[in-house]
Amino acid sequence: MPIPEDVTGEEIDKDVRQELLSLPKTLADDVAKNLVMVARLIDEDPEGAYGYARVALRLASRVAAVREAAGFAAYAHQKYGEALAEFRAARRMTGNADLWPVMADCERGLGRPEKALDMAGAPEVQKLDKAGQVEMRLVAAGARRDMGQLDAAIVTLQSPELASNSVQPWTGRLRYAYADALLEAGRKDEAREWFAKAVEADRDGGTDASDRLAELDGVEFMDALDEETDSSSGDAVEKETGSGSEPGGSAG
């Protein structure tokens, strides 16, 4: 697959670069460039990221960072069985527990929420840092929802991290998941409160909490084309509908 001229391979994390030192220099550079492309594309073009990850994997399947990158690319492309296999391989190579939550989420993607819950109670969870433990809680709550255990999902998300006023990288997603579960349970007022808290914490726009909050407040956003055909709208971009609409649930 083509590599843009501006990609040198030096953009990768220094720890990954260190792992690649086990390879001949030319090969290491090629692998690094493909890993850079995976990182560039994984959010906006999962299929493209997956393609570059497969190239890196063919070149250096014995490098743990490559297996991990291939796992995340497959995960983003919703190839959960393949992702799980790559994450397991990376974990065997490193002995690290960091991938445990995403491995459990792969089990959810494969339609095995019970297995994800088993993993949430495994000793490996105690080896995770705080971010990893919060991620595991999110996966466990999602598994509960997969199984139709909505009240249990809500309880699973109730934690010191949720109650804390401190904003951490995971705070927005945790509050969002809690709000979404509350809404599905019909607890609309509480859901609105927690969507608002999620907006406060979501500094990088990683969730659509602001849109969900607007829907609950009865705000309908109009696109530019509709606006042009509505002679009474002027240059307004939104209107009050007078009643909130019930959005669909998320995947957790």
Rank of each mutant, 00 (worst) to 15 (best):
F195P: 01
G9Y: 01
E228W: 11
A201N: 07
P2M: 02
A83I: 03
Y50G: 06
D6V: 13
V31K: 07
G109L: 07
R212C: 09
A53W: 03
F221T: 15
D105T: 08
M93Y: 03
R54N: 14
M37A: 04
D13E: 13
E190V: 04
V102P: 04
M147C: 12
H77G: 07
L183A: 05
T94G: 09
M136Y: 02
K79L: 11
A64E: 03
A120E: 10
D30A: 14
A56W: 08
Y75V: 02
L59I: 05
E86G: 00
S233M: 15
G234R: 03
V219Y: 00
V38E: 02
P247N: 12
N96W: 06
I154L: 04
G48A: 01
G51I: 05
S210V: 15
M136R: 07
G244Q: 08
A83F: 05
E161T: 11
A163R: 15
K79F: 07
M103F: 09
L157E: 05
R62Y: 09
L35G: 04
R144Q: 11
K79Y: 11
G186H: 06
L23F: 02
A120N: 10
P4L: 07
L216T: 10
S233P: 00
Q149P: 06
G109S: 08
E19K: 10
M1P: 15
Q168P: 02
Q18N: 13
A73P: 05
V38G: 00
G148A: 06
A185Y: 05
A163C: 08
D223C: 02
D6I: 12
A141C: 11
E193G: 13
L162R: 03
A97D: 12
L162I: 06
D43G: 14
V38F: 02
D211A: 14
W194K: 12
A85C: 11
D118E: 15
E215H: 06
G242A: 07
A85E: 15
A201S: 09
V199Y: 06
L213E: 04
W170Q: 09
E161A: 11
E246S: 08
A85N: 13
R108F: 02
E82G: 05
R137D: 04
E82C: 02
Y176E: 10
A73T: 02
A69I: 07
